[in-house]
């Protein structure tokens, strides 16, 4: 199947951005979260530098609460493409038993994701971190630059962003500062799924519908995973995941989409946003606040 014209344009743009990162920075890294957007990003990185290997390592900020299917998928994929993978965990917080039911979602995320990410970037002296965030996901992400400056504390100042014109990206930073780069800025959820379909990209099987054991918490369908405490009634439902995060905080949606075609149809006719199933996005501590602190 030939590629759609608009996907070709998005691909060209993303490849240009990935190459700019390698040209402008000493020590870039790609944040790899194992989800569908990461799969697309990795696929684009392979194309951007073909026939060379991907010229930067992948960083997985692991909370320890990811679905086991995600760990299996990560290890087999990284192995098959011969990429370098760095896994970083906030071992101290994990040893102290960090869990959303204990700390609350915001604090748990702050320790296991934001702090772990900032620590990993500092430890490895990465000056650019490529991420798969998209502007259509959430309203503060709609304001993001493609090259988004972070100060030496890893913080984002949304009111003082550098102007960004045409495709001329400013990669100038001082020591200790860094840039987050978002090559999928212009992609929507529908674009991601269409691209996965047209390019036949491997994704974690959790995205496909299957009968799974879940617990209903408010409006969320939380999977009964090995890492979750079960409180409430367990039901078996035909469901799938629109986005993948930590097992205790990622809801499934009822769905019968067992093929990539039916997932694409669901994505383009969806009336509710994919982030709705992410508990982290709710509550008074908004994405904007978390992003300011250094959240991806």
């Amino acid at each position: 199947m030939s590629k759609s014209k608009y996907l070709e344009e998005l691909e060209n743009e993303a490849i240009f951005i990935l190459r700019e990162v390698v040209a402008e920075f000493e020590n870039p890294v790609m944040l790899y979260s194992v989800g569908k957007d990461s799969s697309v990003m990795l696929h684009l990185a392979q194309k951007a530098f073909f026939p060379a290997k991907i010229p930067f390592p992948l960083l997985h900020v692991d909370t320890g609460y990811k679905f086991k299917e995600m760990y299996e998928f990560r290890d087999s994929l990284v192995n098959s493409i011969g990429a370098e993978l760095i896994v970083h965990r906030n071992e101290e917080a994990i040893a102290n038993g960090a869990h959303p039911s204990k700390l609350g979602v915001a604090k748990c995320c702050g320790a296991l994701k934001t702090q772990a990410l900032l620590d990993a970037l500092e430890l490895n002296k990465f000056d650019a971190a490529i991420g798969g965030a998209r502007r259509d996901e959430e309203k503060s992400r709609a304001k993001e630059r493609v090259f988004s400056f972070r100060d030496s504390f890893g913080q984002w100042d949304p009111k003082a962003q550098r102007p960004e014109l045409w495709n001329i990206y400013n990669g100038s930073i001082d020591e200790g500062e860094s840039v987050r780069v978002f090559p999928l800025s212009s992609w929507t959820e529908g674009d991601i799924w269409n691209y996965i379909k047209e390019e036949d990209i491997q994704i974690v099987p959790l995205y496909f519908a299957k009968k799974r054991k879940i617990i209903k918490k408010d409006k969320n369908l939380i999977p009964l995973d090995y890492s979750t405490n079960s409180e409430g009634n367990v039901e078996e439902l035909l469901c799938r995941f629109r986005t993948l995060g930590c097992a205790p905080c990622t809801g499934a949606v009822e769905s019968s989409a067992i093929t990539i075609d039916s997932i694409v149809d669901e994505a383009i006719t969806a009336t509710r946003s994919e982030r709705e199933t992410r508990i982290i996005d709710h509550g008074s501590n908004s994405m904007e606040d978390k992003k300011k602190e250094g959240y991806f």
């Binding site: 502007r135 259509d136 309203k139 709609a142 304001k143 009111k159 212009s186 929507t188 529908g190 383009i268």
Partner: peptide, 10 residues
């Protein structure tokens, strides 16, 4: 509106 925001529809 202070800064540029990007929006998408099809």
């Amino acid at each position: 509106t202070i800064d540029v925001a990007y929006r998408y529809f099809s």
